[in-house]
C-alpha cells in the first residue's frame, strides 16, 4: 500500500509538482524500491513523449485551410452586413412618409393645400344617396385619389442613414412607380 501512495506522488515528482515533503518521502522510498523507481521512469518517459508531441507542428495545409475559411467567413459577414444595410435602407424607403426627408424643386406644391375638387364632389353626392354600409367604404377611395394628386410632381428623395457616409438620392416619377 505504501507503494501505491508513492506512485501517486511519482506522477507529480517528475515535473516538480509534488510538495517538498512528499518529494523527500518519495526519494527515500524509491532508494530502496525498484518498482517505484521504475514507475517514476515510466511516467518520465510518458511526459517526454507528451513534450515531443508538443513539438510536432500541425500540417501547413491544415493551417492554410483554417485561415482561408476564416478569412472567407469574415469577408462574407461584411458582405452580408452591407446587404443587410441595403435591405434596411430599401425598407425605410418604402415607409418614406415616416423616415424620409423630402426635398422637391417646388416644395410648396408637394403638400396639397386643399382636397381635389373631384374627390369632394363625389363624396358629397355619395353622402346624400348611399346606405350607411357604403359610407364606410368611401373614404378609402377618396384617399387614393388625393394621394395620386399629391404625387403628380417629380420628387427628389433623400434617404439619410446613421452612417454619415451613406446618403441615397433618387428621383421618383411622382406616380409611385
Amino acid at each position: 500500500m505504501k507503494c501505491e501512495r508513492m506512485r501517486e506522488i511519482a506522477a507529480l515528482v517528475v515535473s516538480g509538482d509534488a510538495a517538498a515533503d512528499q518529494r523527500r518521502e518519495f526519494e527515500e522510498h524509491a532508494a530502496g524500491c525498484a518498482a517505484c523507481r521504475e514507475e517514476a521512469e515510466a511516467i518520465r518517459a510518458v511526459r517526454e513523449a507528451l513534450e515531443e508531441i508538443g513539438a510536432e507542428e500541425p500540417e501547413a495545409v491544415s493551417c492554410a485551410t483554417v485561415r482561408a475559411r476564416v478569412m472567407e467567413e469574415i469577408a462574407g459577414r461584411r458582405r452580408r452586413a452591407a446587404w443587410g444595410w441595403w435591405a434596411a435602407a430599401m425598407a425605410a424607403g418604402a415607409c418614406a412618409a415616416v423616415v424620409v426627408w423630402m426635398v422637391t424643386v417646388r416644395p410648396a406644391k408637394v403638400v396639397p393645400a386643399a382636397r381635389p375638387a373631384v374627390a369632394r364632389s363625389v363624396e358629397a353626392k355619395a353622402a346624400q344617396s348611399v346606405a350607411p354600409a357604403m359610407l364606410r367604404e368611401r373614404p378609402r377611395r377618396t384617399r387614393a385619389r388625393r394621394a395620386r394628386a399629391v404625387q403628380a410632381q417629380p420628387m427628389l428623395v433623400k434617404l439619410e442613414s446613421e452612417d454619415p457616409n451613406v446618403v441615397i438620392y433618387w428621383i421618383t416619377s411622382g406616380t409611385g412607380d
Binding site: 506522477a11 509538482d17 515510466a42 510518458v46
Partner: peptide
C-alpha cells in the same frame, strides 16, 4: 495532471 499521466502510463 497526476491522474491523466497515470492513466496514459
Amino acid at each position: 495532471v497526476r491522474s491523466g499521466r497515470r492513466k496514459i502510463r
